[in-house]
Write a protein that binds this DNA or RNA. Structure first.
Lengths: 203, 203
DNA sequence: GTCTATACTGAGATAGAC
DNA sequence: GTCTATCTCAGTATAGAC
């Protein structure tokens, strides 16, 4: 029943490429300066277009930021599905954390908009964002329950606590401090974070 | 050689009381809405004075926020000194984390200004703040080395990683999500955070 | 659909009377 | 030192020409 995809005109392709470029630029700036410090002028300058043109693609700064977050959540879900399902759930959770931390260290925006209460609030009322977030959370939740059933998670910790903790690690300021310090490589930072998260600080 | 403290006039006392009230109000608003969302109008309204009067006490919004942070760091240092020095260092570190998390859940501002890149930057160039932060970090660093010597810390984790992680837990968004969820008491949240931080998510 | 130019608003900071 | 009123500026969003 699937129709063949309609052939896209040159103009349409150009339009979509530019839209991707806008999302990329916003992602960088958002990860770098945070939501409020990032102005629409900044984005326009980074992309190399006029500020007014941005509003032909996204109706507001909030909508633009939401689109970036949705794209990130979708990519994360894809990365999660790519993890080999034969491995134990606890290892898949570790793999997921490793992937999200690497993304963050490469300059991506954190998965949780913890740096901006204003953005946080607007996202909570955004349909597309909430769908993506709940969809991803459901998948992670299944893995948590699987790990729980296998006895791989500390019994005293609640499922929701585990879920939030995994999300929270992607916006942990420890990442930025260590990266700014410069004495550890990205790979080393990721390994220490994963290790501390799952096995704790104490020996 | 110490002179007796000069007797304070009624006016001076009133002035200092008001200044404390301003710091208290700012602390609440900062913990609640974050730095950028908190306007000087908000603070003035919360204290019950005119906005212009704020500037007779603090020369700018940044200076006011810095004063709040310095007060918090000093209180933390006092709380740390109050921990009984006979207990093992690792337990004192846990006690410190427990104290800072409780403060945060009671509405205080987090120890790290992770919610605002702008504030973060201005604080890094603020003499009083940096002195307080470095002083406190030095004390915590000593406890970390003591715990390290006792073999109580995971060998693969660097000292600086442990230090940053302890600071970072006070601005962990997991706290707010769990508190907003309402299914856990403050005490339970603190215990899960401390447990997960030192002993990890995995069983 | 992209540009330049501009309207509008919120918020930090200041002036001047009392 | 506190108030009211105002200045100033940055930044979101829109208008209108091409």
């Amino acid at each position: 029943m699937n129709l063949p995809p309609p052939r896209k005109s040159f103009r349409e392709t150009q339009f979509e490429l530019r839209e991707e470029a806008i999302l990329d630029a916003t992602n960088r700036l958002l990860g770098d300066k945070g939501y409020e410090a990032m102005s629409m002028d900044d984005i326009a300058a980074e992309v190399g277009i006029a500020k007014g043109s941005l509003y032909k693609h996204f109706e507001s700064k909030e909508a633009l930021a939401a689109a970036v977050m949705v794209r990130l959540l979708d990519q994360t879900r894809a990365a999660l599905d790519a993890l080999s399902p034969e491995r134990p759930a606890i290892e898949r959770l570790e793999g997921l954390l490793r992937w999200t931390l690497s993304q963050r260290l490469s300059g991506s925006v954190p998965h949780l908009p913890s740096t901006s209460p204003a953005l946080q609030h607007s996202l909570l009322t955004n349909r597309g964002y909430m769908d993506a977030l709940l969809g991803l959370s459901e998948r992670i939740g299944e893995m948590i329950q699987e790990a729980r059933a296998a006895g791989s998670l500390r019994a005293t910790l609640r499922d929701e606590f585990v879920l939030y903790t995994l999300y929270a690690r992607t916006c942990d300021p420890t990442l930025e401090f260590l990266k700014a310090g410069g004495s550890m490589s990205d790979a080393e930072i990721v390994e220490q974070m994963v290790s501390a998260c799952f096995r704790g600080l104490a020996a």
